[in-house]
């Protein structure tokens, strides 16, 4: 299946120079008379890089065999991270390149969005919010719940986030993985 420029839209997965890409944005331009062009912003799903390409209107790109699937993170054997589709129990293993920064946010049983390319994990997105336990942080100021100061805290997965001064070791925090920022104490 190939898509012509006039079918391009945000979210469409296409092949560009041998790599699967996700279309972010398109802009159609045409001089008064003459050749029309479409300038497309794409994310290379292998490298994560964003690039711009200009096409003649009417050119086409092949569809990329890319699928996003919700999977549960099971465990890591050190070399691979193992995931399972809850509906049918099929399992996939992602390598470190596919995991990238996601490793620092997830723990066993978390649900992740796994992007499969030709049936293999190409990238893994953590949930937008995760709850993680603080394993290490300076004692800080007990009882200070108002002052704006922050300090670094190491979480059970190894991620380091800035937290308010009143947070203690052993507390469970809600963190936004998109920004890497502390949101609140988790309500247990």
């Amino acid at each position: 299946m190939a898509y012509s420029t006039n079918q391009f839209k945000g979210g469409l997965k296409v092949m560009l120079d041998g790599d699967p890409c996700s279309i972010i944005d398109t802009e159609f331009v045409k001089p008064g008379k003459g050749q029309a062009f479409v300038r497309v912003k794409l994310r290379n799903l292998s490298t994560g890089r964003v690039l711009e390409k200009t096409f003649k209107s009417g050119e086409s790109l092949d569809e990329a065999d890319v699928m996003e699937t919700e999977m549960q993170y099971l465990y890591t054997d050190g070399e691979y991270w193992h995931f399972m589709v809850p509906d049918n129990f099929s399992q996939y293993q992602a390598n470190a390149a596919a995991m990238d920064d996601t490793v620092k946010w997830i723990k066993e049983e978390d649900m992740c969005t796994v992007t499969l390319y030709n049936g293999h994990p190409l990238s893994v997105q953590p949930p937008n919010f995760v709850t993680l336990t603080v394993t290490e942080t300076d004692p800080g100021l007990k009882g200070d719940t108002s002052s704006g100061g922050t300090k670094p805290a190491t979480l059970e997965t190894g991620a380091v986030v800035r937290v308010p001064l009143f947070i203690q070791e052993g507390e469970v925090l809600k963190v936004d993985t998109r920004t890497g920022e502390y949101v609140s104490r988790a309500k247990e």
Partner: peptide, 17 residues
């Protein structure tokens, strides 16, 4: 100009670009 298409020897298409 970003990610140029291959317009070959089509002068008018280059001019339009």
């Amino acid at each position: 100009l970003a990610g140029l298409p291959d317009l070959g020897d089509d002068r008018d298409a280059w001019l339009d670009l």
